[in-house]
């Protein structure tokens, strides 16, 4: 069965529709003992910032019913370290490498894009629009179609011919409006959703569980929200949509394709079992057959209302 997906013709071609999600697969190297990472459709790396970032205070992770609450605060060693120490060790000749980029100012997004896009090993960039905009009192870029578009436009101008994927949060009044705005600003694809903000508390200690007080919820608990967002966006934009949120098996992949996604990113399920993403890749053809799907392109967006 032909599982190939073209997100940007000739530039961002995936051998299958399954990518790793930012924040859950490290750089990809961490999972090499558990499977062949070149068999994935692509690797979206953990979030990078222009400069090294120490991240949020501990604890950073709390288990929740059907999900994980986390606040890592984009701990990373900075884009230059990634380029110098990590990228050369990744099998970028065999699998698309897509750094997820984070910034507090539009200018930082530009600089990050310029640095990373200049690297042969970088196939595309995913822009985390859930970042707080330091020029707007910490409002997230994606909360406003104008600031979201500005960030994407800034990245596009410095990304050369490297495709730019806009990652959207569901926590905005109208995700469709923001999707339209980033498409107009030049985004080559949209991924959604980012994590949903939540809170875990310790009754005995009468304190929040996470050091940062609030965190982002991921896992199966958010899958219905992600499906809704993908479905709404896929109907109004012409660029491909990558579904993210609660994918744990091949059938989940089909659910996202059914509502219009071109591809999916597997996130926190990798924490439940490091073989999860490799198993999904392996099982997808058989599960397609089980559901009578002969052509995933024809199946995409075939939800009947």
């Amino acid at each position: 069965m032909d599982l190939r997906v073209s997100l940007v013709e000739g530039i961002l071609e995936l051998k299958n529709p399954i990518l790793s999600a930012a924040g859950s697969f490290g750089s990809g190297l961490e999972y090499q003992p558990y499977g062949d990472i070149t068999q994935l459709g692509g690797i979206i790396t953990n979030g990078l910032s222009l400069y090294p970032c120490a991240g949020s205070p501990l604890p950073r992770i709390a288990a929740a019913p059907a999900g994980l609450l986390s606040s890592v605060g984009t701990q990373n060693d900075g884009a230059e370290y990634f380029i110098r120490e990590v990228l050369p060790r990744l099998p970028w000749q065999s699998v698309p490498i897509i750094p997820n980029i984070n910034a507090g100012r539009v200018e930082e997004f530009s600089e990050l894009a310029g640095l990373l896009a200049a690297e042969e090993g970088v196939t595309a960039l995913e822009v985390n629009l859930s970042c707080h905009n330091s020029n707007r009192a910490g409002q997230r870029f994606c909360q406003n179609p104008v600031t979201a578009a500005r960030a994407i436009n800034a990245v596009k101008r410095f990304a050369g011919n490297k495709p730019v994927i806009a990652k959207l949060s569901p926590e905005i009044m109208d995700i469709v409006e923001v999707a339209r705005a980033v498409e107009a600003a030049g985004a080559d694809a949209i991924s959604c959703i980012g994590k949903v903000q939540g809170l875990a508390v310790d009754v005995r200690g009468r304190r929040p569980v996470l050091g940062n007080v609030t965190g982002g919820l991921s896992g199966p608990a958010v899958k219905p929200i992600a499906l809704r967002c993908v479905w709404q966006i896929a109907q109004v934009v012409k660029i491909p949509v990558i579904g993210v949120g609660g994918i744990t098996c091949a059938r989940d992949v089909l659910e996202f394709l059914l509502v219009g996604a071109h591809a999916v990113s597997v996130g926190s399920a990798s924490f439940s079992d490091p073989e999860t993403i490799f198993r999904i890749v392996q099982e997808l053809p058989a599960v397609c057959e089980e559901y009578g799907i002969e052509d995933i392109k024809a199946f995409r967006g075939s939800l009947q209302i």
Partner: peptide, 28 residues
């Protein structure tokens, strides 16, 4: 509090001192 056990989730972080064997990572 470790979570993934493989260094991917960044849930468990420890800060190194100036004596860390790899000087590039000292204090990080």
């Amino acid at each position: 509090r470790m979570n993934c056990g493989v260094g991917a989730c960044l849930g468990c972080s420890t800060i190194t001192s100036k004596h860390w064997p790899d000087p590039i990572r000292a204090g990080l």
